[in-house]
């Protein structure tokens, strides 16, 4: 059997990922997360008479806390694989990446392990977020904001 035939054979038996189904899953789960986030905001606004901005900040903290805790308890990784982008794009994805690298690299030491790898995945979000925001604000200022 030559290489090409082998490749064909591999392709034939490879489990087919249903892309359409993935998108539907991501949409539904992401939507539910957005719905819950809005729910917590409204709840906090009504219960503690907070402004929308303050309630939003508390909600952000609550969701980050929940995602970190669920990651530490071990079942959030499973959820992430099943929900795909549905949990990656919400703030939960950011919190998950920070807490999972903190947990994974703890055994390699506090400085060279935990400290050096803490923002291993979230670092690029912060870096490119700040870079793009900086450039865009400069552009805005130049064209007259």
């Amino acid at each position: 059997m030559n290489k090409e035939e082998y490749q064909k054979l591999v392709k034939k038996y490879e489990p087919k990922e249903n892309k359409f189904e993935n998108v539907i899953y991501a949409f539904l789960i992401g939507g539910v997360v957005g719905f819950i986030t809005e729910g917590i905001i409204v709840l906090l606004m009504n219960f503690f008479e907070l402004s929308r901005i303050v309630a939003g900040a508390w909600t952000c903290l609550i969701i980050i806390f929940a995602a970190s805790l669920f990651t530490a308890l071990g079942f959030f990784d499973n959820w992430m694989t099943k929900a795909k982008a549905g949990l990656l794009i919400p703030t939960t994805g950011f919190a998950h990446s920070v807490s999972s690298s903190a947990l994974d690299y703890k055994k390699e030491g506090l400085i060279t392990g935990l400290g050096a790898n803490f923002f291993k995945l979230a670092g690029s979000v912060i870096l490119y977020g700040i870079l793009s925001a900086f450039i865009l604000v400069i552009v805005r200022v130049i064209i007259g904001g």
Partner: peptide
């Protein structure tokens, strides 16, 4: 609201 503020 939270649907837009809750994502990355």
């Amino acid at each position: 609201g939270g649907g837009a503020t809750g994502i990355i």
